Amino acid sequence: MKKIFAGVALGGLMALSGSLYAADYQIDKEGQHAFINFKTGHMGFSMLHGRFNDFDGTFSWDAENPENSKVNVTINTASVDSNHAERDKHLRSDDFLNVAKHPQATFVSTGVEVTGENTAKVTGDFTFNGVTKPVVIDARFVGEGDDPWGGYRAGFEGTTSIKLADYDVSMDLGPASAVVELDLTIEGIRQ
């Protein structure tokens, strides 16, 4: 990742003829170039897949010092979409997402550890159902560059998992359903 960021830094110097700086990005929610997907076991019989359709956030990263990067995301939990209206209604209830009491979940990074040429572990505080716990996202740099509309974009993907019991989720569908895996694709537009 440091080699990639070093190449990006050199390209930025050539393009901007200025000094390196931490770039701030707005997650491209409007263009639907970012996704928060999830999956969990359904009582040991199958896998349930879904996503959150409404979220927003920002990230910044420093090409010279990627460990100084930051991420901040807010998810509107009522936007859960598992492609089944009745199930989504149940997921919004106090059995699971408890959206009436806690309409948002948030992730605020607390650190970034570079683990390879284009990989890192992003540590942060995840708040869900009124409970805040540390999580680690295994992240991968996807790419960056100019877009056709005069902007500049950077993208990452990541994975993490959470135990529902850690966040006071009251519904227990057995061991196969105890953990939710999150699959994240984040594309941002430089501000």
Rank of each mutant, 00 (worst) to 15 (best):
M47V: 14
Y21K: 08
R92L: 07
M171T: 10
V179W: 11
S19M: 05
S46V: 13
N98K: 05
L91G: 10
G158L: 02
G18S: 02
T123Q: 10
S19G: 04
E157C: 00
S170F: 06
G130W: 06
V179K: 11
G130E: 02
I162Y: 11
T106Y: 05
D94P: 05
L20R: 03
G145H: 14
A165M: 11
S17P: 11
A120L: 03
I4C: 10
G143D: 11
G155C: 08
I27F: 03
K2M: 10
G145N: 15
I189Q: 01
I36G: 04
E181D: 15
G7I: 02
L164V: 12
F52M: 10
S60E: 00
D62R: 00
P66S: 04
D62K: 08
G18L: 08
A165Y: 06
F55G: 11
V71P: 11
V136D: 07
T77K: 11
V122E: 05
N118F: 09
D138R: 05
T106R: 01
S46A: 15
L182M: 15
D183K: 12
T123W: 08
G111E: 07
H102N: 06
R87K: 05
F45L: 15
I4D: 10
D24M: 07
A78P: 07
K39S: 13
W61G: 02
V112S: 01
M43Q: 13
T110D: 13
G130N: 04
H49W: 06
M47S: 15
M14S: 14
A6E: 08
V112D: 08
S19K: 09
D62M: 07
G151S: 12
D88N: 08
F35N: 01
E113A: 06
N65A: 10
V180Q: 01
G7M: 03
M171P: 06
F107H: 14
G7V: 00
P134K: 13
V71R: 05
E181C: 12
D146R: 12
V131C: 03
G155W: 02
T115F: 00
Y25A: 06
S17D: 14
A139H: 03
L182T: 14
I36L: 13
A22D: 00
R190L: 03
T115H: 04
L13R: 15
T160F: 13
H90G: 04
D172V: 00
K89M: 01
G145S: 14
G18H: 00
D183Y: 12
K2P: 02
H90V: 09
G7P: 04
Q32L: 09
A15L: 09
A178P: 12
E181K: 14
K39R: 15
M43S: 14
D146M: 12
